[in-house]
């Protein structure tokens, strides 16, 4: 059953990013940082990793004169995250859930 756990979600930050993105449309960098309470660099590296494996899509645009980067899960990312959650739930003894 262990193999169903997705290596991509080993990090708590990545789990957090996916958790926020699956229930929201386009979330920007600042908002993710505020919700997760992590540094810019840390967040950026985890987001980049999720983007490389195709779980997250990125949109860069300008709001007024300020650049704004937002993120959203891809279909594959959303599916992978849900499978990962199911796998975690199966590993937990029933009585605790």
């Amino acid at each position: 059953m262990i193999e169903q756990l997705n290596k991509a979600f080993d990090s708590r930050v990545r789990l957090g990013i996916m958790a926020v993105l699956v229930v929201n449309e386009w979330v920007d960098h600042a908002r993710l940082k505020e919700l997760l309470g992590v540094t810019d660099g840390n967040l950026a590296s985890h987001l980049a990793a999720l983007e490389v494996i195709g779980y997250v899509q990125v949109r860069k645009r300008f709001i007024g004169k300020r650049p704004n980067t937002s993120y959203k899960t891809t279909v594959a990312g959303g599916r992978a995250f849900r499978q990962h959650l199911d796998a975690i739930e199966k590993l937990i003894p029933r009585k605790d859930v």
Binding site: R12, A19, V23, V27, R31, I88, E89, L91, I92
Partner: peptide, 21 residues
Amino acid sequence: TSNDRMNDLAHIRGLMDRSTR
């Protein structure tokens, strides 16, 4: 441990709630 996983789930649930409500 299964405790870590419980914490992960609580963390995920908390973020989903806090980010939408």
